[in-house]
Design a protein around this nucleic acid. Structure first.
Lengths: 340, 340
DNA sequence: AAAATTCATGTCAACGTTGTCATATTTTTA
DNA sequence: TAAAAATATGACAACGTTGACATGAATTTT
């Protein structure tokens, strides 16, 4: 009943052919007569034969790729994962997820291990790891294929295929949206000098203010990271001060949700007393009250594209750097008021 | 510069020993002289040699396990994943994530493929797949190791090691909490006849009402699934009716958040006009306003335990069924009022 | 009708490990 | 001090596949 898994030789024996012929049928190679092909396929079905991936892997390049991330945002990770997985399944690849700590200084070693042991043939790097040029180079030096996702309006260099997401443009759009609604004192929450997405969004914010003839007030730019708790803390800090803003640009939806929460604590009605916008269009932003006006970031699509490029790279051995840019669209909802 | 990856034979040549001896050093086998051991280790370090996992896998049992789930809840999946991953890393195992659609009828075939091709040696099954007794049996028949996570106060059978989570007990506790706060008309949102967790929580809800001498009103038990949107729809349905409840038990935090949202739309203050409780203690439940009273479900811990059991099973070949139960604790926050 | 070409199949060596067994050396025991 | 046991090492097969090459049959070309 529960016998050993059938091998290619078992199939061969039963079909009365050499095991190489079975291999040909399995891999859909040319020059197999239809006669034998059907016969072999019948036996394969009968025995329920499945080629052993491990053994196959010994003769071929690895068909696993790693998704490397350092990001506490569940929605982000899941969306990315799903996007990558959709491509992997289509093309028979496997996904290895690799959450890591970019500050530990161990990332290179960790990745070296999984690459060196042939566990994966390529990696998808997300911010902030993707911004580490040296890391990319060292992975490349290990003959690994690399695709990275970065913030920017163009790829920073030609090291490897790159997906770039135009945070600046989107930061500009959403800030201008607040301006057209009459807001003049707009705070920026989540500035972080080491965080490219934050900086891009900040540049867009500044550009929009300048275009409207306004100057950027340092008072209104608050430093913090991309979490709910940080959003709460930054908003507290802001509201403590005298001259309150009429609108608030959260660098991502979690910060914005933190701001929403804090506004609520201070008996401020959103959007009547304070307008708030977020960034990312995570499911979360549809589930707050009021629903957040935000920027749609198509994570699953971005990830799928990254996986697509990486798999292309892994299949053809040529290392031609193809890039791909994403523009982000405004999503208007209920957290912004029209100032008269 | 970028030469081929070193193999065990390269190490052997450089160290002047047979490659078998190197294998012994790598695997920490007995009967290697300290002298040679250090010499070999030096060469390993020098060449930066990493054993090829794929080749090793050809001679050993697979050390990958699959996390199989059909659940749209990002927080849940991420917490589970992290819990499993923590164990995998500790013990040198690999994780294959396998989201699937339990209604497609393809699950068995999908899992058969990844098991049959030696991609994984074991699987962790979560609800609702873990409740499918036949599926478990068929996986077992394929010599796969299985650990399942189910809802219940005891394992349903001895098929395989089982993690059981006492939803009934927790549903009872949280309902009783509402009762002690003076609530009498308590709605139950998210009843689903095919969903064991829902049923468990429902049974707890009923038991608490009975204990308080109340009867369960069909009017107050609303069927739906475990999503925000369903929570909105169910709350709408409930509020449409004449006789409104004073409290509302959402079968998970997302339902509760949907209820919160809808209450807000209807100008009902929570908890003053309506109390709401959730279930799961997802990060989400701390980020709503007001923060949700809920039940803590230690997903990462549960998942880690499951991985631990599964890895144990994969290492020792004996199939002894060890089980493990989890009790759930109430988390009191701000979404329940004291009714006078 | 012989030679060349295409098609169909088979043989055998790899891939980089681990397991089995044999052998050489050292240490212990009788 | 010879025999036995323990220790240390190596030779070689095996895992299940794919790739390089060989071979034989059928078909086309000259």
């Amino acid at each position: 009943m529960s016998s050993k898994k059938p091998t290619i030789k078992d199939v061969a024996r039963l079909a009365g052919v050499s095991f190489k012929t079975v291999s040909r049928v399995v891999n859909n190679e040319a020059w197999v007569s239809d006669d034998i092909k059907t016969r072999v396929q019948a036996v394969i079905a009968q025995l329920n034969y499945q080629p052993n991936r491990t053994a196959r892997l010994m003769r071929t390049a690895p068909f696993s790729l790693a998704f490397v991330y350092d990001n506490p945002n569940s929605h982000y990770v899941i969306e990315m994962q799903n996007g990558i997985l959709s491509q992997c399944r289509q093309k028979g690849f496997e996904l290895v997820i690799h959450p890591t700590d970019s500050h530990s200084g161990q990332v290179l070693q960790e990745l070296t291990t999984i690459i060196g042991s042939n566990q994966v043939g390529g990696v998808i790097l997300t911010p902030p790891l993707s911004e580490n040029r040296e890391l990319v180079q060292q992975l490349l030096a290990q003959q690994a294929k690399v695709v990275r996702i970065v913030s920017g309006s163009a790829p920073p260099d030609d090291l490897c295929p790159t997906i770039y997401v135009d945070d600046e443009q989107a930061g500009f759009s959403i800030t201008r949206h607040l301006l057209t609604q009459g807001h003049r004192r707009i705070a920026f929450l989540g500035y972080h000098k080491d965080h490219q997405s934050s900086l891009g969004r900040y540049r867009g914010y500044c550009a929009a203010l300048h275009e409207a003839g306004l100057t950027v007030s340092e008072q209104l730019v608050i430093t913090g990271d991309f979490t709910f708790d940080s959003g709460v803390a930054m908003t507290e800090q802001l509201l403590q001060r005298g001259d309150k803003p009429s609108a608030l640009f959260g660098c991502n939806d979690e910060i914005a949700a933190g701001a929403l929460f804090t506004a609520r604590m201070h008996q401020l009605a959103v959007p009547q007393d304070l307008s708030i916008v977020g960034f990312e269009n995570s499911p979360f932003s549809r589930q707050t009250w009021p629903r957040l006006t935000t920027v749609h970031q198509p994570n699953a699509e971005i990830a799928a594209k990254a996986a697509d490029l990486l798999i292309g790279l892994m299949l053809e051995s040529e290392q031609h750097s193809e890039h791909c840019g994403f523009e982000l669209q405004l999503v208007l909802r209920d957290s912004v008021s029209l100032l008269s």
